[in-house]
Design a protein around this nucleic acid. Structure first.
Length: 876
RNA sequence: GGGGGCGUAGCCCAGUUGGUUAGAGCGCUUGCUUGACAUGCAAGAGGUCGAUAGUUCGAGCCUAUUCGUCCCCACCA
């Protein structure tokens, strides 16, 4: 045996992972003899490195996959990474800026070369980090959203949707990030409320007959105003509809139009209309045939339509325009106002709603079946409440802007004909226009939203669009595990994409987990500097400690806090497992270890087997419900309290005693229970369990492919377990009494037992009581009169205990203590009586419950009598 | 404006379909070199489960209202 005295994960984690890989345990392939179980990884972005959120996400998936694999499923966990179009491009540009180069310096091709190099470096790093966590991914299938296979799927889907009319090109108001210089989808905009102002402006009538006051939060857009709208039922304004206003600063004539979009109650009841810079205004513009004047460039500066403000940055322009409006008397007043400002989710600069020609996916026809599928539970959210969030989004979904003015990503497969203007969209790059045959064609410069390819992930990684054996066998996948923050970005889009292209849901279950926060409950973020690197934690405490601390006690969908203290606790637990195993293995050395079926089971053996059995059931039930937190908690309790604190202690007198047969039998049970516990633990803490398993006698192969324990009805041993617990109760009581009278724990005492039903069990367990409670001898008495001298007594449901302690006994304290006990018993009697006297309870409660109460009442009444007798005795 | 989470011991959290005397961990108190482990062992203290009302024989759990707190969604200029 070469196990070190303390758990030191560094000595074995890497070695074990390499072994697993070499043995091919992670690999899965279609196997007619097995039921598949498939999980696809939420592909981490290649932008950076693993954070705690990934660590949690990985641990949850790995525990599920390992559990299923041990249960005999052909378990596939398909790994991969995401090119993360905009996020990666932003990072690369940042890196280039440090070197003083811009995108334009490199050109598209040069830039892409650099991007691929980035992918190579950071993609590999992520993979390495995932391996450190112990994730049992099938690395033979490592995928990347821009690899050949996924790109083929993207192309296929784009063409299909285009041909179906579900992808179209159009000029609409989109969210524009002037910093990233690209369009964004609605989901990519984050709104924050910021203190700002309402600028109330006065637009005069052309005929000099007065003015209309409008308010705006973005005064610079007034340069592009092409109307003022009022509600057609608003009596204040009806006479003015159709009249002409002079737009200040610009001196353009603009009409007053009536449109029901305007809320009469809000502000002045008149709205300036800027069709090029506001989605609502754009709609109003369409209805009234208004001119669309875009006054801003892609980089956020004002363009030539902005006249003298041309070239100014949008915020400078705002300042100047306000000044000028004030000068010319058009600024009526400034009112403080909290404004909801949209920000780019990648660079966090404020986005501009701007009119732009982009590609869109028509969502309504896709959303409908996606709503149905979840409504009919073909895909089930855990916890269920997230389906509401999903419905809410899907039901109010708007068309998806999928084109991005970036270089890193899947280039849009649309080819424009310079001669006839026709757009050719095809699976293979065309050499000529499909309409006029001209060779004078060029490909769209833009790339697709990164989420367009992630949406296909569950099937593109398995071979779509080809009808592969993998796809046939492993799809649809079983569970998708992800945090709630990408339900819209990813989960929802996978569902409608799969329904459209695969005609089925992409996964049966979605397990939503929360976010990992810091010890104070704050979100971990770079700007706060409160992020904790999982690798550092692994280095210090081991991967198993990290994994266990992340999922022990968590509940689905809820956020969790991470702290070193928790990891320390988990590490201590690992150490506990380690040392308990060391104890077992040490004792096995040089001894024959029989199979559990050959063991002559003692009361203690049956008790631990019943506890093990309960743990198996708890873990299994909770795993099926994706309650990994509860599964872990029940294992923690079983291993630490039942196995270590009690059972191992109970075996010591046997192991250190001289009876070889008993010793051998105890070893058989110990090894069996430990081995089972290790298997139960393995999905959560794979490394330590494997390392110990390899050292345990009677094991061969890897624990990760050994069968998972199953609930065994024959091992419930309810009666025996109850007897054993009665004995344990006696041990606790004796310990307690010693503390109360101030006797040293090592002081041996004589224990007198008065019992009717438990003599046999207590006799069988006398050696345990003697050793664990520090008892010199156990005397069975027929009545309490047999005990002489000053005694401390205690009433248990199973028996009465009398311990002669001579001078240590303080009569007054004893009376007080017994009276305290009596009080408790009395209140229990009162409670039980109240229940049993309640007609409703007796009439309606289940019989077992009523019987239980009756039994308790009898028991407590007996105890009451005994206590009263003892108190009386003391008082004499 | 809509939707949701959370509120249980000093702290951080569990609590499965309503049913024993509401549980862990950390922290705290007291004691212990008990031949696996001081990353330990033993014994303890500590909770009117945010508030109110209701449903029920029975509520931490279900319903309504309410307070506090966090989050998501939404084009009111």
């Amino acid at each position: 045996m070469d196990m070190s005295k303390t758990y030191s994960p560094k000595e074995f984690e890497t070695k074990i992972y390499e072994k697993w890989e070499q043995e091919g345990y992670f690999h899965a392939q279609p196997n007619a003899d097995k039921i598949p179980f498939t999980v696809v990884i939420p592909p981490p972005n290649i932008t950076g490195q693993l954070h705690m959120g990934h660590a949690l996400n990985q641990t949850l998936q790995d525990s599920i996959v390992r559990y299923k694999r041990m249960q005999g499923y052909e378990a596939l966990w398909l790994p991969g990474t995401d090119h993360a179009s905009i996020a990666t491009e932003v990072k690369i540009i940042e890196q280039m800026a440090k070197e003083g180069i811009s995108k334009e310096d490199l050109g598209r091709e040069g830039f892409l070369e650099r991007a691929w190099a980035w992918k190579e470096k950071y993609g590999n790093r992520i993979v390495e980090q995932i391996k450190h966590l112990g994730s049992s991914c099938d690395w033979d299938r490592l995928a990347f959203t821009m690899d050949e296979r996924c790109s083929k799927a993207v192309r296929e889907v784009f063409v299909k949707l285009y041909e179906k009319g579900l992808i179209y090109q159009g000029s609409k108001i989109i969210n524009w990030c002037p910093c990233c210089k690209t369009a964004l989808s609605d989901a990519e905009v984050e709104y924050t409320e910021e203190p700002s102002f309402f600028w109330h402006l006065r637009y005069p009538f052309a005929d000099g007959s007065g003015y209309i006051t409008v308010a705006t939060t973005r005064p610079e857009t007034m340069l592009g105003d092409t109307a003022v709208a009022v509600n057609p039922t608003d009596e204040r304004y009806i006479p003015f509809i159709g009249k002409t206003l002079i737009l200040p600063l610009v001196n353009r004539e603009i009409p007053v139009v009536g449109d029901s979009y305007v809320d009469k109650e809000f502000g002045s009841g008149a709205v300036k209309i800027t069709p090029a810079h506001d989605p609502n205004d754009f709609e109003v513009g369409l209805r009234h045939n208004l001119e669309v004047i875009r006054v801003m460039n892609d980089d956020g500066t004002m363009n030539e339509k902005a006249g003298e403000y041309c070239g100014l940055d949008r915020f400078e322009a705002r300042k100047k325009i306000i000044e000028d409006l004030e000068k010319c008397g058009a600024l009526v007043r400034i009112e403080p106002h909290a404004h909801n400002v949209g920000h780019c989710y990648r660079c966090h600069n404020s986005v501009e709603p701007i009119i732009s020609k982009q590609w869109f996916v028509k969502m309504e026809p896709l959303a409908k079946p996606a709503i149905e599928a979840v409504r009919k539970n073909r895909t089930k959210f855990t916890p269920d409440r997230f389906s509401k969030i999903y419905f809410n989004w899907m039901e109010n979904i708007r068309n998806w802007c999928i084109s991005r003015q970036l270089w890193w990503g899947h280039r849009i497969p649309a080819f424009y004909c310079k001669d006839c203007g026709h757009i050719t969209v095809a699976k293979e790059d065309p050499t000529a226009c499909s309409k006029c045959g001209s060779k004078n064609i060029w490909q769209d410069e833009d790339v697709l939203d990164t989420w367009f390819s992630s949406a296909l992930w569950p099937f593109s990684t398995l071979g779509y669009p080809d009808a592969t054996a993998d796809l046939e066998y492993f799809f649809p996948t079983d569970v998708l595990v992800t945090a709630y923050d990408i339900i819209f970005f990813w989960v929802a889009r996978m569902i409608f994409s799969s329904l459209e292209h695969m005609k089925t849901v992409p996964f049966k279950d979605v397990l939503i987990h929360g976010i990992v926060r810091d010890a104070e409950g704050r979100k971990m973020s770079k700007s706060l500097g409160n992020g904790i690197d999982p690798l550092e934690i692994i280095d210090e405490y081991g991967a198993d400690s990290l994994r266990f601390s992340l999922i022990n006690g968590i509940s689905a969908g809820n956020d969790t806090r991470f702290s070193k203290e928790k990891t320390e606790g988990a590490r201590n637990f690992m150490n506990k497992i380690w040392n308990a195993s060391r104890f077992v293995i040490m004792n096995c050395e040089g001894n024959k270890v029989p199979d559990i079926t050959e063991c002559k089971l003692t009361l203690a053996d049956k008790w631990i087997l019943s506890k093990l059995n309960a743990a198996v059931r708890s873990v299994t039930l909770n795993m099926e419900k994706y309650e990994m937190g509860l599964a872990c908690a029940s294992l923690y309790d079983f291993v630490w309290s039942d196995l270590c604190d009690w059972y191992i202690e109970l075996t010591k007198p046997v192991l250190y005693g001289g009876d070889e047969a008993k010793k051998s039998s105890a070893l058989g049970v110990l090894v069996y229970v430990l081995k089972s516990a290790l298997k139960l633990l393995h999905p959560f803490v794979p490394f330590i369990t494997e390392e110990i398993y390899q050292n345990l006698p009677g094991t061969d192969g890897s624990i990760m492919v050994s069968p998972f324990p199953r609930y065994n009805g024959k091992q419930s041993y309810r009666k025996e377990a109850a007897s054993m617990e009665a004995v344990m109760e006696i041990i606790k009581t004796v310990r307690n009494i010693k503390v109360q009278v101030g006797a040293a724990p090592s002081k041996k005492v004589q224990l007198n037992v008065l019992t009717a039903d438990y003599a046999k069990a207590i006799k069988a367990c006398s050696v345990y009581i003697e050793r664990l409670a520090g008892v010199s001898e156990i005397v069975f008495i027929g009545s309490k009169e047999e005990v002489t001298g000053k005694t401390v007594s205690h009433v248990l449901p199973s028996c009465e205990l009398f311990i002669p302690l001579g001078e240590l006994v303080d009569t007054d304290k004893e009376i007080a203590r017994l009276e305290g006990e009596l009080e408790k018993v009395n209140s229990e009697i009162a409670r039980a009586n109240a229940k049993l006297n309640n007609q409703g309870f007796v009439a309606k409660a289940p019989k077992a419950l009523i019987d239980g109460e009756k039994e308790k009442l009898v028991k407590f009444n007996e105890m009451k009598e005994k206590l009263e007798a003892q108190i009386k005795e003391f008082k004499n």
